[in-house]
Amino acid sequence: MLRSVLAISAILTLVGPGAADPLTRLGVGRPATPSAIAAWDIDVRADGRGLPPGRGTVREGAAVFAARCAGCHGAQGEGAAADALVGGRGTLATAKPLRTIGSYWPYATTLFDYVRRAMPFDAPQSLTPDEVYAVSAYLLHRNGILPEQAGLDADSLARVVMPNRDGFTTDPRPDLPAPIR
């Protein structure tokens, strides 16, 4: 027990609140520069704040999806090695709900944010903003939310109303901001 206390004391001395700057004391890491932070600051909020400039159409999205997404999600987004992205409307209250973009997701901006950050699986963050807008338009079209001739940009994507937007409950804590509508 005494050894454990001494070990913990030694560790806290090295990295605890009273320790010197770990970058210099331990010789690891590097300072977070504004440009390094900006490269990682790519979140998109439900109301569209954070969406980058760009534009993409359903037709362009079909081509990007075929080249970069269909291998995992199926030719039409029906699911293959990875989850289905299309279908599932009306299944959430059934014994076998299919949670897809069109049946479950409350905000279209979440689709953009997720694709931009995490897809394609083998090369996350490799799609341009125009390609992400295009894939988003294509998937929203495949889910019956956008017409075939639609295009998306930061303004129009933020205005898309998803079928399950009101399917989530809000956090009842009074100290939180009101939900986005």
Results as ranks from 00 to 15, higher is better:
Asp83Asn: 13
Ala84Ser: 10
Ala84Pro: 06
Leu85His: 02
Leu85Cys: 14
Val86Pro: 05
Gly87Phe: 06
Gly88Leu: 04
Gly88Tyr: 01
Gly90His: 03
Thr91Pro: 00
Leu92Ala: 01
Leu92Asp: 01
Ala93Arg: 15
Ala93Leu: 14
Thr94Lys: 13
Ala95Ile: 14
Lys96Arg: 15
Lys96Leu: 15
Pro97Tyr: 06
Leu98Gln: 00
Thr100Asp: 01
Ile101Gly: 07
Ser103Met: 03
Tyr104Met: 11
Trp105Gly: 03
Trp105Ile: 07
Pro106Arg: 01
Pro106Asn: 02
Tyr107Met: 11
Ala108His: 04
Thr109Ile: 10
Leu111Arg: 01
Leu111Lys: 00
Phe112Met: 10
Asp113Leu: 06
Tyr114Asp: 01
Val115Glu: 02
Arg116Cys: 01
Arg117Pro: 00
Ala118His: 13
Ala118Cys: 10
Met119Pro: 04
Met119Val: 06
Pro120Gln: 10
Phe121Cys: 09
Phe121Gly: 08
Ala123Glu: 12
Ala123Trp: 14
Pro124Tyr: 15
Pro124His: 07
Pro124Asn: 14
Gln125Ser: 00
Ser126Phe: 15
Thr128Ile: 10
Thr128Asp: 09
Asp130Phe: 08
Asp130Ala: 07
Asp130Asn: 14
Asp130Pro: 09
Glu131Lys: 08
Glu131Pro: 11
Glu131Ile: 13
Tyr133Pro: 04
Tyr133Asn: 11
Val135Pro: 05
Val135Ser: 11
Tyr138Phe: 11
Leu139Glu: 01
Leu139His: 09
Leu140Asp: 04
Leu140Arg: 00
Leu140Gly: 05
His141Val: 07
His141Asn: 08
Arg142Ala: 12
Asn143Ser: 15
Gly144Asn: 10
Gly144His: 05
Ile145Leu: 11
Pro147His: 12
Glu148Pro: 04
Glu148Arg: 13
Gln149Pro: 03
Ala150Lys: 02
Ala150Phe: 07
Ala150Cys: 14
Gly151His: 12
Ala154Lys: 07
Ala154Gly: 12
Asp155His: 04
Ser156Ala: 13
Leu157Tyr: 02
Ala158Gly: 01
Ala158Ser: 15
Arg159Asp: 09
Met162Asp: 09
Met162Ser: 09
Met162Cys: 12
Pro163Asp: 03
Pro163Gln: 13
Asn164Ala: 10
Asp166Cys: 03
Gly167Ser: 05
Gly167Thr: 07
